[in-house]
Design a protein around this nucleic acid. Structure first.
Lengths: 230, 230
DNA sequence: CCTTGTCAAGAGCAGTGCTCTCGAATGTGT
DNA sequence: ACACATTCGAGAGCACTGCTCTTGACAAGG
């Protein structure tokens, strides 16, 4: 059994090394990851890689899950680092800046999880659990404010269509009991806008348009914090 | 000269046919467009395609420019179709729904221009002119409102950092003279959010989360219209 | 008519994902 | 300790890719 675990450990180390090299290739060459190139860097022949990953998609899936967990770690840590838990705006800015910071530090992995999906690739449910960590962290900030009574339900703005109210209520009931739908809706809007802002910057749509990236991002996050009421 | 033009015309027709087939392949197989497959569908051999496009990137660039112009046409037409030009909110909703409608109708082309950039592919300046049409149309709605005096400069919300105010002023001066920076900023935020909302839906991040897509989108657009003050 | 420019075809190169087979090494049960 | 079973890496090979270069056919223009 200890021998079985030594095999398992060496195997796990191989898998980690393959993923590490694959991440390097991803950062260098973008999404078109070559198994043969990874194998070359490992000093192996390409067919040997198939002992560890059934195919290229499997390797990509592993990288995707890792990426989701990596950005999830970053954002949760950034939120946790704010000592005054009642400073909702401070937590919001810390968490959103962590998203952008992680994206700028790991552009290829960001593109992997938030860019155009690879054609023919269907993300397994496995990825969803990891994917939900960032938006959950963001909405939790709002839920904390609503729960402590310091964040009022927005009274202005468009009324929620029944169909939207219904799907939001279902999300609320499973994760954020007691959170008003209107606040959840604004949280989702802010999360979608955050994703848009980071993607815009990373995918080059701000080139020759906005130069003061950091300041512009900060301003946007403050604006969305206002929208939520934080 | 008429013979030269007959040659040129046949050549132009060939180029159009290649692009049409390439678009079909793009829609079917996603971004990994195969020149050989396109050539097969044209009844030609792959090398013959190189008479019309220097390489695969050139073909992609042509498709990108076409896509930008296609969505630009859609959005401009949708805005123009609103007869009451003073109905800013109506124009806003028409234009933004046109963006989403075009994206849902042409998902592959949307991913081509708004998804993760192809690694090693640098978009030529040529694409920028076409790319600017949609955001210009959106901001023009705001500028029309500000110009006619019916859209006040937002007085609440975070103040613009000087660096942001500066870059916004430069954009304003070249395209929307007289538009207050604060309004331009909110227009850009709304445009970025719109891009995020459409991308989120199209790239599958709403799967198993939000089902009432159309209603949710509409609600979001109303919320952003409120943010602008429209 | 004959030159000139344009075009498609074919062969070929280097690369890709993936499969299959074959030894060699390594851990497991008796 | 020895035989068995499993795991692993290497290699060959298939079908595919983008791209280049050469060759031969054809049509337009002088």
């Amino acid at each position: 059994m200890s021998s079985a675990s030594i095999r398992a450990r060496v195997r796990a180390e191989m898998i980690e090394e393959i993923k590490a090299i694959a991440r390097r290739h991803l950062a260098a060459d973008g999404a078109n990851l070559s198994l043969r190139a990874v194998a070359r860097d490992m000093g192996m022949v390409s067919s040997a890689l198939y002992r560890y990953f059934a195919n290229r998609d499997d390797l990509l899936t592993a990288l995707i899950v890792d990426a989701y967990n990596s950005i999830g770690d970053s954002v949760e840590a950034a939120d946790a680092r704010v000592t005054n838990r009642d400073d909702l705006r401070g937590r919001w800015l810390a968490a959103t800046h962590a998203v952008r910071g992680w994206a700028l530090a790991n552009p290829a992995e960001y593109a992997l999880i938030f860019g155009s999906p690879v054609p023919g690739y269907a993300a397994p449910q496995l990825t969803a659990d990891a994917a939900v960590r960032v938006p959950t962290t963001l909405v939790r900030i709002i839920a904390d404010g609503a729960g402590s009574g310091r964040l009022p339900t927005p009274r202005h703005g468009p009324r929620l269509p029944p169909a939207v109210r219904e799907v939001l209520a279902r999300i609320r009931d499973t994760t954020f009991p007691g959170l008003p739908e209107a606040l959840l809706a604004r949280g989702m809007v802010a999360w979608i806008h955050l994703f848009g802002a980071v993607s815009f910057e990373l995918f080059g749509h701000l080139n020759n348009v906005i130069e003061a990236r950091e300041e512009f991002f900060e301003h946007q996050m403050r604006l969305m914090a206002d929208l939520i009421g934080i």
